[in-house]
């Protein structure tokens, strides 16, 4: 989970939280489900309230990050050979050991991708 959290790239805006992870083999980004900020669009002139919103934003962002990491776990795997984080399209189920596409090519292993 920590590995996923480390790899998450923040794509959030003031209105919603969204995180992305880049597959280290194909380079394609995966985006987490966007979670709207509970106070999105609410404008306040009061400094105290603004600060409160900022704190709330950070708190919700943290939660969204955890949720994104959990979600990413369903789509990403760590290659046991090269230790890279790869998407399901680039992660192959092989006979002996599952591994990423590039490692499989290097080791001349045949396998089926998790998502064809």
């Amino acid at each position: 989970m920590n590995l996923l959290i480390d790899h998450l790239e923040d794509c959030s805006t003031p209105n919603y939280f969204s995180f992305a992870i880049r597959c280290e083999v194909c380079g394609e980004f995966w985006y987490s489900n966007s979670i709207p900020f509970s106070k999105a669009g609410q404008v306040t002139d009061y400094v105290d309230k603004k600060e409160l919103y900022d704190v709330l934003y950070q708190k919700e962002k943290q939660r969204a990050q955890l949720a994104a990491a959990k979600e990413a776990r369903e789509h990403f795997s760590q290659c046991p050979i090269c230790r890279r984080l790869v998407c399901d399209s680039c992660f192959l189920i092989c006979d002996e050991m599952d591994m990423c596409k590039e490692c499989a090519t290097r080791m001349k292993e045949a396998g089926e991708p998790v998502i064809p």
Binding site: C11, T13, N15, Y16, S18, E28, F29, W30, Y31, S32, N33, S34, H75
Partner: peptide, 11 residues
């Protein structure tokens, strides 16, 4: 991909 489509739909 599905994730990209969802993200595009949001913003």
């Amino acid at each position: 991909s599905r994730s990209i489509w969802k993200r595009l739909c949001i913003d």
